[in-house]
Design a protein around this nucleic acid. Structure first.
Lengths: 308, 308
DNA sequence: AAGAACTATGTAGTCTGGCTACATGGACGT
DNA sequence: ACGTCCATGTAGCCAGACTACATAGTTCTT
């Protein structure tokens, strides 16, 4: 019952092909195949089945892969123990973010982490439209993901998620707009406006849909953009209004746009760190997540102070 | 961060010497020493310290050994998973018992387990006076131990204990004794009798002590025996009375002895199966423990039916 | 006080076992 | 039917964990 072999089985469960496992573990497919064969012989029952030109896990294989995760967690917890004893988090941590969260959290968090010698954080950004957040966890230690309340697309996949912050989604208006002097807005106030939306299928879309449901009217969506900067430039040009994450865009100092909170709607998004459970145990990873979380609460506090 | 090496560290924590670990794991002391050295180099901090001619773990070493236990548990749980898939418990299970529990539970339990092909249970008995129950768990998979209520001598040592039964301790009287017609006895009834006790330091001893406390008189103890058969033979010979575990001795069919429950005293012993946590996860071990537990409840039920 | 008996640990050499490189044999797409 | 993608066999290499033996330190004995 070798741990390394179980680890390969677990990778197979996640990645789905021997070749992918081989690539990920810096081995040849042959080596992976051989080890899986040995594991199967030890187990005394088939763990994989051929399906087309690939192969899939049997029930037994999946069950074993699940226990392998528990072992990996225990293992990483052990290394975290001696990392704690050495009193420092070291190693490489890779991270993907979607642009807005990265802009908001990463610079500060990385500054906070600068005094950790030997801790290297490698960041990338990825368009949330193109990315399947859960799938990214096999490539990156930390995946910054966002979700609307209640819709946990990654629930039940055995991933660890740490909530970082709840960010309200406000209505962004050009400074001279007729609603720009109001303290807050209701669905009826905004449904008649010209909207700049997000691409279809984006989680934000639901809020505009809720507005339509509440008022019984349809909203006019003229453009659909994924990039928030682009959206903001359209707002400031007076070409429409849009939902804007409050903390992210408040960074814009030009004063050509104002944000108004939405009343009576569940208009906020959760930003979470998504990780494979074993990776989540690494002290280095936990340290980075903690820095992100601290930064997130600081952003919220700063903003609350600024508006008060 | 190799699991095998961590396992050696854990064994060292339990057994206390490199030589003992080597013996237990069928290796030479040199091999063990080398592996521990490698582990230490990987960890980057000392895990062991020389103390006299042996060596002891440092704080870091102990912490790491503790995590190693978690890993071992997860590992055994994984093997239990595929044992379940193969739908049979196989392998060798070793067990020590003290005589009375063995006599009461083992024959029946082993009969119940006879239909499990490939499951071999190796039993031994050991005098409870001579044996340190917790220490035996490194030599045997299952240790049948008894304790009085509330005194868990093995608490906090990180062992798993499964309660099998609670056995009342009655007063054994020769059939013609003046108290033999009573339904139950109190402390005052029995304190003046001639007693056959257990060796000093035995857990039972506390009950006789309680009797003395309750009545304010001293009990006369003429003999002290560890073997229950011996005690019973003395009772039947009219040489004294004694505390007798109810289920164990009721097997005696000669009718020359009667058992009377004690009123107003906490006169019962717990019989538990004591195991190292990793071993406790093995399907084979769990199967044997379950058979013991089933047998124990059956013994209790049969006895309740017989007296009703 | 000196040796015997125990501890751990170095050193040299052996051998198991997981790897790579290459070749083979199905399954899918065109 | 061919090329391409899979998984998987085979042969041989090499790291790394082991044994056997030697060494050094500590404790108990006589």
């Amino acid at each position: 019952m070798d741990v390394q072999r179980l680890e390969l089985l677990r990778e197979l469960a996640v990645r789905g092909s021997v070749t992918a496992v081989a690539r990920a573990t810096h081995r040849t497919p042959s080596a992976v195949s051989q080890q899986l064969k040995v594991l199967e012989r030890e187990a005394g029952l088939p763990l994989t089945e051929r399906s087309g030109r690939g192969l899939v896990l049997t029930d037994a294989g999946r069950a074993l892969a699940a226990s392998a995760t528990d072992i990996a967690v225990a293992l990483e917890r052990a290394t975290a123990v001696w990392d704690t004893f050495r009193n420092r988090a070291t190693g490489d941590v890779s991270l993907v973010t979607f642009p807005t969260a990265g802009q908001m959290l990463l610079p500060g968090a990385l500054q906070d982490l600068a005094d950790h010698d030997g801790l290297a954080v490698h960041c990338t950004d990825m368009d949330p439209e193109l990315s399947d957040f859960p799938a990214l966890t096999s490539e990156y230690d930390i995946v910054l993901a966002h979700s609307m309340r209640g819709q946990h697309t990654w629930g039940g996949r055995g991933l660890t998620s740490v909530p970082l912050m709840t960010e309200p989604l406000d209505v962004g208006l050009p400074t001279g707009h007729r609603l720009a002097t109001r303290a807050s807005l209701g669905a009826a106030d905004v449904v008649g406006e010209t909207w700049i939306g997000v691409p279809l299928g984006y989680p934000f879309g639901r809020i505009l849909h809720d507005i339509e449901l509440q008022t019984g009217s349809r909203a006019l969506v003229t453009q659909r953009f994924a990039d928030m900067r682009l959206i903001e430039s359209f707002i400031m040009a007076g070409l429409g209004i849009a939902l804007v994450p409050r903390y992210t865009s408040s960074a814009d100092p030009t004063g050509r746009m104002v944000l108004k909170p939405l009343r009576g709607l569940d208009a906020e998004r959760q930003i979470v760190a998504l990780m494979r459970p074993d990776r989540a145990e690494r002290l280095a990873v936990r340290t980075v997540v903690e820095a992100l979380r601290a930064r997130a609460t600081q952003v919220q506090a700063e903003h609350a102070a600024a508006t008060a």
